[in-house]
Design a binder for these strands. Structure first.
Lengths: 152, 152
DNA sequence: TATTGTTATACTCTATAACTATA
DNA sequence: TATAGTTATAGAGTATAACAATA
C-alpha cells in the first residue's frame, strides 16, 4: 500500500471549500480572488508593478489591467518612484484598506462555523499543523501573500 | 481578545498555497481550476448540464462553454437523455479519465514535500482534523466535488 | 407555464509579443 | 543592452438576458 495520500487529498478538499467561501464573499464585494489577494498584499507593502506581479505569480502585463480596475474603483493608487523614473509604485488607499478589513472579517466569520465543531485543543493543534505545512510551502515556492498579510 | 482567528487565517493561507500548486499543475496540462473540478466530478457521475452547474456553483450558461471546450479536446462528451428530450448528459471519456488520474497523482506528489515534514502521527491527526472541517463545510454549503471524487 | 440548454453580449483575468521610456 | 511598464491582441471563464425546444 505504501503512502495512502489521505492527507494530500484532505488538503485539496478543504482548500476547495475555503476557496468557495472566499469566492462568494469576494463576489459580494465585486472582488475576484486575485483582487482579494492584491488588496491583502498591499496592506503592508508598497511594491512596484513588477514586484506585485512576482508576488502573485502573474505576468507584469496582467498587473496593468488588475491595478487599473482597482484604481478606477479607488481601492489602490499608483505613484511614480522618485529614484527610478521607469518604476511605478502601487499602494492601497484608505477605502481599499477598509474594504480589505471588512472582507477579512467576513471570511473569518464565514469559516468559524466550520471550525467551531473542534474542541479548543484541537483548534490549536490544527493551527499549528497548518502553519507547519504552509511554512514548508513558503520555503519551496514563491507563493506568498494571502488575505492575512505577510506570512513569512 | 475573545477569539483570535488564528485557525481561520491559517486555513486561508494554506488554501492559497494548495491552490497555487493546483493552478500550476493544471496549467501544465492546459486545464483551469474549473476544468480540473469538472474532470474530478465526472469521474464518478454522469450529470445533466444543470446538475453539473449546480455542483460547481456556476450558471448553466457558463457550463455550455466549459463543456464545449472540454469536449473539443476529447476529455468529456455529451449525450441526449432518453427520458427527457430537453436534457443533456455529460460524461468523461477514457482520455479524460486518464488525464484526471495523472493530474491527481502529480498533485499528490507536489504536495508531499510540504507534508513530509510532519511525523506519521501528526499526518494522521491533521488528516482527521481537516476531514472534520470539510465535513462541516459540506453540511453547510453546496460546494462538493474535488479532484478526489465524491466527498460525502 | 415551467424547465433544459444554447446563444448573444459584456466584462474580468490571463499570457505573448511589440512598444516606449528609462537605466 | 537591459529593465519597467503599457498596449494590442487573443482566448478562457463568468453572469445576465433572451431564446427554442420540450415538459
Amino acid at each position: 500500500m505504501g503512502s495512502d495520500d489521505a492527507l494530500e487529498d484532505a488538503l485539496v478538499r478543504t482548500s476547495f471549500r475555503v476557496m468557495a467561501v472566499l469566492t462568494r464573499i469576494g463576489s459580494d464585494h465585486d472582488l475576484s480572488l486575485t483582487q482579494l489577494r492584491v488588496l491583502g498584499l498591499l496592506r503592508d507593502r508598497r511594491p512596484r508593478m513588477t514586484e506585485l506581479a512576482a508576488f502573485l505569480g502573474l505576468d507584469k502585463s496582467t498587473m496593468t489591467g488588475l491595478v487599473e480596475r482597482a484604481e478606477r474603483r479607488g481601492l489602490v493608487a499608483r505613484g511614480k518612484s522618485p529614484e527610478d523614473r521607469r518604476a511605478v509604485d502601487v499602494f492601497i488607499t484608505p477605502a481599499g484598506r477598509e474594504l480589505a478589513e471588512r472582507v477579512q472579517e467576513e471570511v473569518r466569520a464565514a469559516l468559524a462555523p466550520f471550525t467551531d465543531r473542534l474542541r479548543a485543543d484541537d483548534r490549536q493543534l490544527l493551527t499549528r499543523l497548518l502553519d507547519s505545512v504552509s511554512a514548508a510551502a513558503t520555503a519551496n515556492q514563491a507563493t506568498r501573500g494571502t488575505l492575512s498579510g505577510p506570512t513569512g
